[in-house]
Simulated assay, not measured.
Amino acid sequence: MPQMAPIWWEMLFIMFITTFIIMSMMIYHITQTKKGESDATIYVYPNMNWKW
């Protein structure tokens, strides 16, 4: 039924916006908790020899 298409598009749009907001909140929370830690615990990566 073509008349039902706007409802599905609206549901997809709302799902996309909610997932985007949740992902942004998670990224913000992770970066804020990383800032609260000391610098010694953040930058302890002894074997990071990248070969590009």
Rank of each mutant, 00 (worst) to 15 (best):
W9N: 04
P6M: 04
Y28K: 08
I27F: 04
S38R: 14
V44Q: 12
P46C: 03
T31P: 01
N49L: 14
I27A: 07
N49W: 10
I21R: 07
W50A: 11
P6C: 01
M4H: 13
Y43W: 10
T19I: 14
T18G: 06
G36C: 00
K51F: 11
W52H: 02
F20S: 07
Y43E: 07
M1I: 08
F16C: 04
L12Y: 09
I14M: 07
T31Q: 11
A40K: 08
I30M: 06
I42L: 15
M25P: 00
M4W: 12
E37K: 13
I14V: 09
W52E: 02
N49S: 10
K34Y: 11
K34I: 15
M23A: 13
I14L: 12
E37N: 09
T18I: 15
Y43C: 02
Y45C: 08
W50R: 09
D39C: 04
M4P: 01
F20M: 07
I17A: 10
I17M: 09
N49Y: 13
W52P: 11
S38E: 14
A5C: 00
S38F: 13
I21E: 04
M25S: 02
I7N: 03
A5D: 00
M25T: 01
T19H: 10
N49R: 12
Y45K: 10
T31S: 12
V44S: 14
F16H: 02
Y45I: 10
S24E: 11
F16A: 06
E37Q: 14
E10M: 12
I17W: 06
W52G: 03
T33F: 09
L12P: 00
F16R: 01
D39G: 04
Q3V: 06
V44W: 15
M15K: 05
K35R: 15
I17Q: 03
N47V: 08
F20E: 02
M1V: 07
A5H: 00
I22F: 11
I14C: 05
V44L: 14
W9H: 06
M26P: 00
F20W: 05
M23E: 01
Y45L: 13
D39V: 12
M48S: 15
A40Q: 09
I7Y: 12
